[in-house]
Amino acid sequence: MADKPTLTFAFMDPPYETGRTATFFRMLDISARRGYHIKVFAYEGAVALPFSLQKAHANSVHGRDAAEENHPLPKDWVASLMAEAEKNGGSLNWVNCGLCVDERGVNAAIDGVSRGSPSDFWKLAAASENSLVIPTR
């Protein structure tokens, strides 16, 4: 069986601010279910996506408590997709731009997230079959 491809994505948006986030994670989900090797270079605001201290809340407008609301936390998406990729013989390697992490104070990331430098995007992309940049606006 041919090796599964390695795809690299660069993403920039912080959580909860744009429709790009859900689309990006949908792409990661498709890739993870296929057992592809996924590399994510999280740049600028996107380094907050796997921030381990995200906390769910209730929704009083809809009368739902925290459990009922089940508010999405992107850190859980990242963890779930890491597991999904591995389950299917692939991998999700999430690299946070370290300087971006420092200036935002989001150093506490979930397990499996690594800290890198801006040059890592080039290295990851160069070692992949293809890459996609999803910029912020």
């Binding site: 491809p5 795809l7 792409m27 498709i30 592809y36 293809n130 890459s131």
Partner: peptide, 17 residues
Amino acid sequence: QLDVVIDAMADGIKTIW
């Protein structure tokens, strides 16, 4: 389906957002 993006990337098609 959004799969077309991953299909394209896996096939080496130049993909621009």
